[in-house]
């Protein structure tokens, strides 16, 4: 993994964090609330988590089995959070 790629990943992660924070601070003003905000927040954390797994942990060049365990964890946890959120809406 070259340094330029690692720096790019770092900047993307910072921008994604800013997006998460913005949804929290100004979600009402921006019209990003409720289920839309929830799905957006989960999508952002999946993108961030995937970058950490692939580029920081260095699993990008590793067999699918290992990547699927870590990224699968991220997807499963996100799905459970979404289901719980959906139940709360009812």
């Amino acid at each position: 993994m070259n340094t330029r790629h690692l720096n790019t990943v770092w900047v993307v992660l910072l921008l994604a964090t800013l997006a998460t924070f913005a949804i929290g601070e100004a979600g009402d003003t921006l019209g990003i609330t409720g289920p839309v905000a929830m799905l957006l927040l989960l999508a952002i954390s999946i993108v961030k988590g995937r970058l950490v797994v692939l580029d920081f942990m260095g699993l990008r060049g590793v067999k699918f089995f290992w990547r699927s365990l870590l990224v699968g964890w991220l997807l499963l946890v996100s799905a459970l959070i979404a289901v719980a959120y959906w139940i709360a809406l009812k």
């Binding site: 952002i44 954390s45 950490v52 959120y85």
Partner: peptide, 11 residues
Amino acid sequence: IVLFPLVYVMR
């Protein structure tokens, strides 16, 4: 990365 949006932001 999962904890922050879940506990601090999502509502």
